[in-house]
Design a binder for these strands. Sequence first.
RNA 1: GGGGGUGCGCCACAGUGGGAGAGGUGGGCAGGACUGUAAAUCCUGUGCUUAGGCUGAGUAGGUUCGAAUCCUACCACCCCCA
Length: 377
Amino acid sequence: MLKFTIHETDKKSKARAGTMVTDHGEIQTPIFMPVGTQGTVKGIHNRELDDPIKAQIILGNTYHLYLRPGIDLIQKAGGLHKFTGYEKPMLTDSGGYQVYSLKGMRKIKEEGVKFRSHIDGSKHNFTPEYVMDIQRIIGADIMMAFDECTPYPCDYKYAKRSMHMTHRWLERCIERFDSTDPHYGYHQVFSPIVQGSTYPDLRKKSAEYIAGTDREMNAIGGLSVGEPHEDMYNMTDVVTDILPKEKPRYLMGVGLPENILESIARGIDMFDCVLPSRNARHGIIYTSKGMMNMKNAKWKEDLSVIDADSPSPSSRVHTKAYLRHLYHVKELLGAQIGTLQNLSFFLWLVNTAREKILEGTFTEWKEKTLIDITRRL
RNA sequence: GGGGGUGCGCCACAGUGGGAGAGGUGGGCAGGACUGUAAAUCCUGUGCUUAGGCUGAGUAGGUUCGAAUCCUACCACCCCCA
């Protein structure tokens, strides 16, 4: 069973600091989960997830791992932990996000989703039941429901219909999940996902429905797909007022550093986002003093270190001019140093938020920190 | 030394071979985007300008109403022969 303990709740916001205990280890919340879609967080090694990043849990993706290397091999290897050598907690996304991002290469029906592989165009059929089976084989500590992530903007009629279908799919996910056992001897948590686009009444309805399924944790999906930040925050607010306080809440796909702080304030415990890792490969560096586009000419001769306060040693040693050079000549080390910097910053951000919640100074710290981290250097 | 070929925009390569094209592709350079990873990716710009235009096809002449295109000389590079 998943144990979740809340140690402290902020007086001026809904922020909380807690601990989740999985069979692969503890997770101190609020937490940011680096995304490792294909069995690796792009650009870095597992041991760097421990040090300097201090990751406590990472993501994998059902759709991608199913296509390559395929579930037979993962099963043969003894699950994704064994296959990758990463023995800390893992969460798998269900492929619901690919229903959204691979639009044009899939067909959504009540029964499930027919995909065309983005690799070779081959046809595949994902049903809620099959996605549960695949995630059992992958063996992540947390399995996500198969949902439809609606795009933005999304008209009310479609959002409502999609939400109801996601709820029906959820029933099927639960039935299959509850009637099957883990393959590898450790517990797997199942998380349902709230949908409802940017409509408060739909979000409320969905949150009530999801809360009613009484699972070990809950997630909010369908946000950070291009809607204004105010909508994202409002929807999160509506939903966290309904989802049970005693269970972890996961806001899927979020986000920018400021999104994370604002969402912690609204009662979110878990985040994931490709932004720090992807942007690192594209030359965007996040620090506690602001963000930099390292490719810009302004850094060409800047021989000061990347970030003197960084948790990542390479950022304290190497200069901005050197990192810019690495990006310019497309050396892989640039992406590596950048990924280490961004992910260790994101983990620093949530860990510090946690400390401040425990100290009772979260809201003041958040307001001050927002000014720093949104600065463009 | 002789013969042949080629020279344009930051670079390379294609293309054109009397009516200009500030044209193509790639790269470089300068910006921008990226939120449960079809992404080490994608997009925009890249002669000057007072925004009307102006200048421009190795250099200098010439022929022509008109030349990147034809002619002459020179320069540079490439190939072949000695």
